[in-house]
Nucleic acid binder design. Structure first.
Lengths: 251, 251
DNA sequence: CGGATTTTTGACCAATGTCAAGACCGGTGG
DNA sequence: CCACCGGTCTTGACATTGGTCAAAAATCCG
């Protein structure tokens, strides 16, 4: 695990180890397949073979761009990635944020070309999985096929989450809670978040104006739910925050 | 093909034939796999074996309900299905509408239980595909695995479509254009739609109030873009309607 | 025909967006 | 070390879209 400082604090910052033939990267998208479900050695080696580490994208750089031919999906190893599309009128639309261990590019299988840009929000490393190779392997290894189906299916649900006509408060609360949960899954404290993305990106993702994000965070802080310091947020009343988020997150 | 009358008109109404060992149902979700890509005979028979026709749901009846254990996906054969969830506050949230040939239930793979209700909007018949059986088959027949990946991926894109902060006009235009396209794919005229769903359902799906849907349709008609008669809509100026929908549909 | 449901229409209201100005923060170079 | 600069963030005043409420009209269905 690596650490980075922001505003003079020590902030945990996940960095994937390289893994080995037995364990694979700890943050690997397919880690669970290999560990929990006991994939056979050969499959594991095959998976290793078709993975390619691609690294050191700096903030603002693109991992792929809209319209490029789809050939691979990417697992985030370190840093945070956003996907976004820019519509005909020039409006930016942020589709999602991806933390270490999450898969980017699943929405490109159908159109066969990437329907969005994937942009690094800080220093990012990814694993590249050639999709033809991966689907061949998936046909041989049930666990991997399963995992792909699962993640595709999960993304459908996630995309639908935002689509509701929820209030700005509900959206922001759900955003913070969900981000918190995903950090916890990766072994980070539940009550402290560092936001890799700007207010503008958050607003764009939640379909709000940046000003509204600012105001709501301010209000949450005034009510004692959270403590905001720039891009660092500590959650002081998780239960109340969750209560707000409930209509969106319930299931 | 069957026909039904509404408001005294003759409205085309797709009814899938039963297919045979060679051709499968014409509207079948996996039709393209079998025909275009030449699936081997054995696979085709297997697919036939694991399909189960389930029929004659009447308007309002559920094909599955929130929380039931996930065991199968369904391909619509006849009629129209809506999926919806009811949030903690009792608000209904329509997730999608499904025409003949489309797959319902893909969003249930991940949670392993259906995260929404699937409700018949008129007289509905479906094909039931046991999911364990289907994924086993998918591992053997690349075309089927491919088709599943494709459709899962497509649904991610569709779910994201609605999520933008688009105006009521843009939403409704995109809704009509997209519905029209899907009908055309099924061999129905491009300029005439019959809406199986109520204004309330449309509103709910587009995250608008029912009153807004009414008003916008009225305005479209006043401007000569469409002609509305209850649930029948004819598109008189497709180009202009598309122009409105463009920010949402472009890709 | 008659009650229930859906749809339309109108009047009003509130949440959120827009515009504009200023504060803050981090980085750069003198 | 400090001054400046660009970007991001915050705050305030105001405008607008779409929601809410209520009632009337149309449609459905027995």
């Amino acid at each position: 695990m690596g650490y980075a400082t922001t505003h003079g604090r020590i902030v945990p910052n996940p960095i994937a180890d390289d893994g080995d033939d037995q364990t694979f990267c700890t943050t690997c998208a397919f880690g669970s397949v290999c560990t929990a479900r006991g994939v056979d050695k050969i499959a594991l080696r095959d998976l290793h073979c078709l993975v390619e580490h691609v690294g050191n994208y700096r903030s603002g750089e693109a991992i792929f761009r809209t319209g490029e031919r789809f050939s691979a999906i990417y697992a985030v190893r370190q840093g945070t990635v956003k996907t976004r599309l820019v519509d005909i009128e020039g409006r930016e639309l942020v589709l999602g944020f991806y933390l270490p261990g999450e898969l980017v590019g699943l929405n490109a299988i159908h159109p066969e070309s990437y329907p969005c840009d994937a942009i690094a929000l800080d220093t990012v490393e990814v694993c590249r999985f050639s999709f033809p190779a991966l689907s061949t392997l998936a046909a041989r290894v049930p666990g991997i096929q399963q995992e792909l189906f699962r993640r595709l299916s999960k993304d459908i649900g996630n995309a639908a989450l935002l689509a509701g006509d929820y209030s700005a408060d509900e959206r922001l609360a759900a955003f913070l809670v969900s981000l918190g949960r995903r950090y916890v899954e990766r072994g980070f404290p539940a009550d402290f978040l560092h936001l890799a993305m700007s207010r503008g990106d958050i607003a764009n993702y939640l379909r709000l104006a940046a000003e509204t994000v600012s105001r709501v965070l301010r209000r949450f802080q005034d009510h004692g739910l959270i403590r905001v310091d720039g891009r660092d947020v500590s959650v002081t009343r998780p239960a109340e925050l969750f209560a707000l988020a409930k209509p969106i997150l319930q299931r």
